[in-house]
Each structure stands twice: as structure tokens, then as C-alpha cells.
Amino acid sequence: MLYRRIFIEKASTTWMVLSISIILVLPLLIGIGLYVKANPLFEYMSLGDLICSSTWLPNEKEFGFLPFILGSLHVTFIAFCLSAPVCLLSAIFLTQFSSKRFMYFMHPVIDILAGLPSVIYGVWGIIVIVPFISDYLAPLFGVKSSGYTILAGGIVLAVMCIPYILNMLIEVFNTVPAGLKEASLSLGATFWETVKHVVIKKGIPGIISAFGLGIAKAFGETMAVMMVVGNMVQTKFHLFDAGYPLPALIANNYGEMLSIPMYDSALMFSALLLFVIILLINLVFRYFIYRTKKYE
């Protein structure tokens, strides 16, 4: 009997260690795999040229990834600027000001938004956002635009990120203890002053990490963005011009990647770039959280 229990004890621990090793090793394997596959490309061009050049002529073995990197950054930047304030304000409202009932009502709504497949967001972008930009918004600024633009990509991406970031922020604000709010109120603060000086301040590490994870997710989001962003290789940051983010490059071209020499390596390299950039975003935000926790 005791044997059996000790055996189970050992076995379960082993399983846990095994599972965690898989989680640890997996990203490493992916990174190495991508690097190995992308390696032939480095014989043609240096890493600096690959990242900084903006000439994209696969047939002539000219692979400059700058337009794609910038495309991703532009779209992500717009998405962040649009979604961050909305998420922050709604999370504060839902956790601090609204009734419990309304919160119960909102939870499934947020979950539905979070669970929708990205194709649906893409389709919604095509039938609503794209025409809206080409017919109303662009003319308003005196610009002619097809509607398939960086702005459309950014808007669609923002809407996709909102439930994701919002859920995390709600979690963050719910963990601020009631006693802390009561302390601030009893010192004579109004409710809004309490939210500003105590709830938000206490939540800053959480807010930063929610935004960080949101940005990382936005950066890698492919399908919906690809459907509305226009997919044109260029480096300008103009809201009403088309762009071409990294993930879209991979998704659009993996089918023909073997037909052009070096093209497969180039696509693998773009995947590697994506991998590294998302890793960097995560590291930077981890560092921010560490800093704010330290000086809290």
C-alpha cells in the first residue's frame, strides 16, 4: 500500500517536471529551428542589411525586411493607441463604478468578443471599416484611399485586442484590496481621487503587463490584419496608405515559397524576426514590471 503511494508520488512529480520541461524547451526548439532554416539567407546578405534594407525583390534575391517590420510596428502602434485608453477606462468603470449586475452581464459579452475567430474580425473589417475609411474618413481629410490601409488594420486589431486586454485589466483592478480603497476614502478622498491615487497606482505593474501582453499579441496577429491592411510593400507611415506586416508576409507567401530560390529561407527569417521581436517586447515589459514593483 505504502509502496503504491510512494510510486504515485514519484510518478506524479516526474510528470510535472516533464511537462514543465516541454514548455521550457519548446520555444527554444522553435527558435533554433527557425534559425537553422533561415541560415542560408545570411550567406547572401548580412543581418544588418536584412533588417535595414527596404528593397524587396525576391526574384533578384534582394530581401529587405524593413517595410514589413515597419508595417507591423505601425499597425500595432495604431491598435495600441486606440485600444489602451478604451480598455483602461472600461476596466475602471466595470470594477469600480458599475453594479455587480452589470459586471455579470458584461463578462459573457467580453468572452464572446475574445472568442471570435480572427477571420470574423477580418470580414467585419472588410465590410464595415474599409468602406467607412474609403467613403467617409479619407475624403474628410481630402485623401483618396481604397480603404485597405494601415488604419483599417490598426482599427481591426484594436477591436480584437480590447477583450483580451480588458479581461486582464479587470483582473488587475479586482485584486486591489477593498481595505486600501476604504483607507483612502476615510482620509477624505473622493471616489475618483481614490481611483486615481490608489487603485490605478496600485495596479500599475498589472496594467503594464496587460498592455505588454496585448502588444505582443497584436504584433503577431495575422489573419484579420492581412485581410484589411492592403499588403503593399512600403515604409511610409501614413494612415491612409496600405502596409504589409510581417505575419501577413508569411501567411501570403508560404504556398509558393519553394518556387523561388532562397524564398523559403527568407520567410523563415521573417518568422524568426517575429519570434525575436515578440520575445523582446515581453522582456522589455517584464523589466518595466520589475522596476515598478521595486519602487512601488
Binding site: 484590496p177 481595505g179 486600501l180 476604504e182 483607507a183 483612502s184 476614502l185 476615510s186 482620509l187 477624505g188 478622498a189 491615487h197 490608489v198 497606482k201 496600485k202 512601488e296
Partner: peptide, 26 residues
């Protein structure tokens, strides 16, 4: 009204700011 009462809770809840600012807050 609340400033007429000082509240001391079961556990200390220092506000997320420096020691000085905690006292200066009110």
C-alpha cells in the same frame, strides 16, 4: 464627514506611495 473620523483597520493598508506621502495624503 469622513475626515472627522480616522479609520484604523484590522490590517494595515499603506497607500501605494512613500511613507512621507502616506501621511501627507490626507
Amino acid at each position: 464627514i469622513r475626515q472627522k473620523m480616522g479609520l484604523l483597520g484590522q490590517r494595515p493598508y499603506p497607500l501605494p506611495m512613500s511613507i512621507y506621502k502616506n501621511v501627507a495624503y490626507g
